[in-house]
């Protein structure tokens, strides 16, 4: 009996020592099997959902397309500058992500405004200045409402027109995208603990072999 107990304790100690370090993040979104013919053989591969091409304008009035994010890991969210509810807390948390990676040219943050009528380019620039962000790490993107709402779906986000009370309803998630433009994580932007996890996951993602190799 005593030996059994010792055995159990030793087993528990071994389990306690197992390291939980993740080496790769999951790939999210819809998967489609693709059958290709390679060297005369039929191969079935899994194709993951990616962010489609887009064209928006940032706070410096520069045109930003998917090409500007080639070879970069980035985080996306949806907001508007006059948002009285969740946006301030989202961007207070996003500032932590910005501070952590602002010297990394292979990293970007993009925040799409869902109220392009009010959030014109000068309004976005003023917001960026007041938020205390500079340089090209964090872009605030302005575009046609339809384009923004359409791309939100690619990020698995729901945004909608003003409700009868004049409020915009939108998700407060931060979406992590890899260099192949695949979705690698969603984080509740209003929760500081989730955002801390996002920062850790970005570091994990950066260390993945196919991210290091991607240009």
């Amino acid at each position: 009996m005593r030996k059994l107990w010792i055995g159990i304790v030793i087993l528990m100690l071994f389990n306690a020592c197992k390291s939980n370090t993740k080496t790769a993040l999951p790939i999210l979104g819809y998967k489609t099997p693709v059958t290709k013919t390679v060297n005369g053989k039929t191969v079935t591969d899994t194709e993951y959902a990616t962010i489609p091409p887009f064209e928006f304008v940032n706070q410096y009035a520069d045109t930003i397309t998917q090409k500007n994010l080639d070879g970069k890991i980035y985080v996306a969210d949806f907001f508007f500058t006059t948002c009285p509810s969740i946006c301030p807390v989202m961007h207070r948390n996003m500032l932590n992500v910005y501070k952590e990676f602002k010297n990394d040219d292979n990293f970007r943050i993009i925040s799409h405004t869902i109220d392009p009528k009010y959030d014109t380019v000068p309004v976005l620039k003023r917001y960026a200045d007041k938020l205390g962000i500079a340089g090209n790490t964090w872009w605030l993107l302005h575009g046609e409402k339809g384009d923004t709402y359409k791309i939100a779906k690619s990020y698995l986000q729901s945004v909608s027109e003003k409700n009868p009370k004049g409020e915009y309803i939108h998700d407060g998630f931060f979406i992590l995208i890899d260099k192949q433009k695949r979705l690698r994580g969603t984080y509740e932007g209003t929760d500081p603990a989730e955002v801390t996890k996002l920062i850790a996951d970005i570091k994990t993602l950066k260390a993945e072999p196919d991210q290091i190799a991607a240009k």
Partner: peptide, 16 residues
């Protein structure tokens, strides 16, 4: 109040 003014009343940069 907390969403804008923060859990420690810290505000947000030059916005709040």
């Amino acid at each position: 109040c907390q969403n804008c003014h923060g859990d420690k009343g810290q505000g947000l940069s030059a916005l709040i």
